[in-house]
Design a protein around this nucleic acid. Structure first.
Lengths: 250, 250
DNA sequence: CGCAATATTGACCATCATCAATTGGCGTGG
DNA sequence: CCACGCCAATTGATGATGGTCAATATTGCG
């Protein structure tokens, strides 16, 4: 694993807690297997009992489930620095799927190595526990959005959340970042149809809140977008990374 | 705290992991403050920074959030044995509210005592971490339900989940348990209007899947209910408690 | 007995889903 | 180089699910 691969993870750890150099080093020394996966590739499937966890280095993944009618619900979007299946350390059987959305570079870390790390170092354990609690906080916001917000606000909220998280791991330049998903992906994340996503998107575009084409997201009017989304970023627990420059300061 | 107060918690610990007697005892010895709260009383509010966690001994609580339009979304229902705000140990500012639904007896445990317990005893820490991961698994199922299931299946799913959890902590007798909520509560949990809940309920009743009146839930036809709900209980991680008698065996 | 909260029912309407046709971009192979 | 096919996105037409409003039980409770 190259040093630069870990930048997002290290930035994320920084945002979660305040790791010491030794703790940072412990992650670097996990010496995982590096893999580059295709787009739309399942990493772990519902019902499986993985013996590794997956750290995203480059690219994007999602967790999703399908219902008997065949419809898909995306549960979360994952960006570099995330460990989307950390829960598999304590919950043996997967209750959902993890898949790439685009070609993605991952680090595969054996459960044994993670357990070792956790058992040795309480602070790291608490850092990871805290990470899984932020993960749960994001789930809660999605429930609120899908349950009680209009398609319009829901979409805007997803964009705000995504942009903030990308910013936190250093993957946002000014108001621009990668967001290489299809409208069908977004639809499955928001509990909508792809047709409706297209319509709502055209409205958001018309109103100049953001643009999104060719997989590139550009925030055009952060204050108005945030307002449309009813977005309050505090649940992401990113205080330590949102400094005087980025999105948070507007 | 009387011995019998802790029965649901102990049963729940049993379901989460496999605590030793010493670990059980550690919980009993936390010596928390006992309080009996009214119905509809907020225990912690969004934005607050609690210094205690709340263990439910008797009664029911929920976590909820409201959106600017005034609509409420219930994020989770909590039954005896649950510690709904365990996350406040690691995430200082509440991103949602915790409230009772009926008169409820709680044990309030200082963060310091919990931290102490966690730091002393890794296995207990892992038990609680695991509990928070099951909590997240429940959130995921709710996202799938609200996003991709019909009102009918969603309601049925909630009933299945509730019944299984009540069963796991010993609060179900045969096919009967308390479920003292209003239809408006259920509506806010399912992301529906209370009017629609009333309609869907009458259909479920007509079809003989379950009855629910005067706060008492009676499962009438578990196999058909489970099918209508598209319910697979594995995500609740209750294997160890669902023996040859209860719901799981039908 | 009467009030308040909850539940039910009907009428109407909005949001969003579904179906279908069309467009545009892009890679591939003739 | 262009034709073809594929996929994503767009747009229109229609319809279903579920929301809102309002009137009417029903229940519990002081």
């Amino acid at each position: 694993m190259q040093g630069e691969d870990l930048l997002p993870l290290l930035r994320k750890l920084q945002s979660i807690g305040d790791p010491t150099d030794a703790e940072r080093k412990a992650f670097v020394e996990l010496r995982p297997t590096i893999r580059v996966l295709d787009a739309q590739e399942d990493i772990v499937r519902e019902g499986q009992q993985p013996s590794i966890v997956c750290l995203i280095l480059e690219g994007f993944a999602c967790r999703y489930a399908t219902v008997p009618s065949g419809r898909r619900q995306i549960l979360s979007l994952h960006i570099p620095g995330d460990i989307p299946d950390l829960q598999s350390l304590f919950i043996k059987v997967m209750d959902h799927n993890l898949a790439t959305l685009v070609p993605t570079k991952v680090a595969l870390i054996p459960h044994a190595a993670m357990r070792n790390l956790i058992d040795r170092n309480h602070r790291v354990a608490h850092l990871l526990w805290r990470d899984s609690l932020v993960d749960a906080a994001i789930f809660r916001k999605w429930i609120v959005g899908i349950g009680r917000r209009s398609a319009y606000a829901r979409f805007a909220h997803l964009v705000c959340e995504f942009a903030m998280r990308m910013h936190a791991v250093g993957l946002m330049e000014k108001d621009v970042c990668a967001m290489p998903f299809t409208q069908a992906d977004i639809a499955d994340a928001l509990g909508l149809s792809s047709v409706h996503v297209s319509r709502v998107l055209s409205r958001l575009r018309k109103e100049g809140l953001f643009t999104w084409s060719d997989g590139v997201l550009t925030i055009r009017n952060w204050p108005r977008l945030q307002k449309a989304a009813e977005f309050d970023p505090s649940y992401l627990q990113l205080d330590s990374v949102v400094g005087s420059d980025g999105l948070g300061s507007r």
